[in-house]
Design a protein around this nucleic acid. Structure first.
Lengths: 221, 221
DNA sequence: CTTCATTTATGACTATAGTCAGTTTATCTA
DNA sequence: TAGATAAACTGACTATAGTCATAAATGAAG
């Protein structure tokens, strides 16, 4: 009973679309499902059009054609809504970034991967900053699931990349690949933060990122 | 005129105490000075006693014996107040952490330094998380000065440490010491985040940090 | 169809960060 | 000292995220 969650786990975390062999999905379930989609859709549109800070929860509720209270049965907070809108996209982006096999030098592969992710973030700097902030600083236990899955995709993708490069003789790292992956991502995250926060230019960001990654994998920049 | 700042630069950023050879410091200045001290003191007490979220700006104003509006002439936001309360302490902590000369292995020196900083943060996990969040994600230009100074102390301290260790033959790093320092701090930051966010235990945190730092400086863990 | 229990929906309401038009206080000048 | 100007102060006010007691909808059982 600890940490009450709304509407079960918010429609079982955007439940799958009519899983075969599963429950017949009565009117109730369909309603919830459809309502959640309306809400996330409305939030996506408004966040995109006006920005996060300029969108009120009232507006989202209105756009989704529900009461203001209902909104908070489907999302714990406005930030939660933001994560709902972008989580899957982010995971997909990360997966895609790791899916292209390559025989390039490890450093170049890494820069490629991070640049792909970057292109996604760069589409909207304000949202990206808020996402980086909210995703990495969950204050409710429920959000940890989100960040955990995303981090898992990124960390394991990077670890695999490192392991394979070493197996192919293209690098020589003794350390635990997982720790190397975490180290690499930490550097990407902080560099991105500096850029989005206006402390560095895009050119500086890219240059520094490459140097940071090179240091981690012990390769000449 | 862009980004209006209140009361000049909030009493010239907690101005020095009667700089010799400077202005005679009339009643007005003394009032401002004293009021700022009352405000920061009140905020410090309340944040410490009740926590950040549980303290209202009204309470701070009341404790400092000023009107609610006045508070926001001295601080732009509640978060700003938090930074005011802890910024100098954090910088001092960082300076102190770098001030003890040592002939130990670089990795051990680094772990020592970060452990010292950690002890400061660990005194209050909730405040630490909010600080990590607010300090690294300034949304107003004015706050960038804060983070810039703190980051400068940390980055240059680490860079010096690395440079000296290499000069003494205790390590062999070809890369720009500044970039190495940034890399090291990025790892500390993310590991600390994981710990404070409850994703890792303290033991894991320390173990992972050591491994991450070792990877960066290319030394066996 | 008619209870009845359970789930879901609602909007008036609360709490609080931050604003602003109007007031007070300090300083300067004559 | 009086008057004028500028700086600093104020609390009633606004805006909005999130709550909660109540109402409506749904589905199960008889």
């Amino acid at each position: 009973m600890a940490g009450r969650r709304n509407l079960e786990t918010a429609v079982a975390e955007t439940a799958s679309v009519t899983e075969p062999g599963k429950a017949p999905l009565g009117r109730r379930e369909r309603n919830k499902q459809e309502k959640l989609e309306r809400i996330v859709g409305a939030a996506r549109r408004l966040f995109h059009d006006r920005g996060f800070a300029e969108t009120t929860t009232q507006q989202i509720a209105e756009e989704a054609d529900i009461g203001t209270g209902t909104l908070f049965l489907y999302a714990r907070s406005k930030e939660d809504l933001l994560v709902m809108v972008f989580r899957d996209e982010m995971i997909e982006t990360a997966r895609a970034a790791f899916s292209k096999p390559s025989k390039a030098a490890l450093l170049d592969q890494l820069v490629d991967v991070f640049t792909s992710m970057l292109d996604y973030h760069a589409r909207d700097a304000e949202l990206a900053r808020i996402l980086l902030k909210e995703v990495m600083f969950p204050d409710a236990a429920s959000k940890q699931a989100d960040i955990t899955e995303l981090l898992e995709v990124i960390h394991s993708g990077l670890a695999d990349m490192v392991t394979q490069a070493c197996a192919a003789g293209r690098c020589d790292l003794k350390a635990n690949p997982r720790r190397v992956a975490e180290n690499l991502f930490a550097n990407y995250y902080m560099d991105l933060l500096g850029w989005l926060g206006g402390r560095t230019s895009r050119a500086q960001f890219l240059s520094h990122l490459r140097q940071h990654l090179a240091i981690t994998i012990g390769s000449p920049a």
